[in-house]
Computed example of a mutant assay.
Amino acid sequence: MGDVTGFAVFFFPQALEALGEAIKPYLQEGPAGPHILCSEIDTGGALIEMTIEARDLDGKTVELQLMVPVSMVRMIVSARGEAAFGFGPRVGAPVPTLPPVGPTAEPAAAPPQAVPSPATPQTPSQVPPSGPPDTLGDPPKPE
């Protein structure tokens, strides 16, 4: 796994409305909605502290600390490594075909072995009685 290179912090729509114009200079638009890209975050209190690298009017890089209530944050995503950050469709590797189970495996069309076929039909004397026995003692004596 690569080193963490940044975080994208997403807010609830109500939070963006409540923060109004003050948050807009820090927001970036993306396929998943507006978010703030920051280099560090601290979620250890009632406020989430976000460290943002920005440029001042002279073009110098400055480090800003932006703090908002934790309850305004919907999700935080970490961006790792050199890969591009985003939520677009991923181009994945083709799914490999599975190898056969083994050289002795039966084909899928083989008949199931779990249910044996009846060799001889059952006669009434072989059918067990249905229902409770008449007595709990010895079996009845033949007359």
Rank of each mutant, 00 (worst) to 15 (best):
E21R: 15
V68F: 11
C38E: 00
C38S: 04
P31C: 08
Q28R: 13
I23S: 09
Q65F: 08
E49D: 09
P69K: 14
A54R: 05
V70F: 10
L57Y: 08
L19A: 15
C38Y: 01
V70D: 12
L27K: 07
L64H: 10
P34E: 03
T51M: 03
P34S: 12
I23D: 07
P34L: 06
D56Y: 11
I41S: 00
E40W: 02
E29Y: 04
D58V: 06
E40C: 03
I36L: 06
E53G: 06
G30K: 01
S71F: 11
E53V: 12
S39A: 06
G33C: 10
D58I: 07
Q28G: 08
A22P: 04
G30W: 01
P31N: 13
R55S: 09
I52M: 03
V70I: 13
T51K: 02
L64S: 04
Q65M: 10
G30C: 07
D58Y: 14
L47M: 14
E53I: 10
E63Y: 08
I23R: 04
K60V: 10
E63M: 05
K60R: 14
A54C: 10
S71L: 14
V68K: 07
T43L: 13
E63N: 05
T61C: 06
I23F: 12
L27F: 07
L66A: 09
L57S: 15
A46E: 11
L37M: 09
L19N: 10
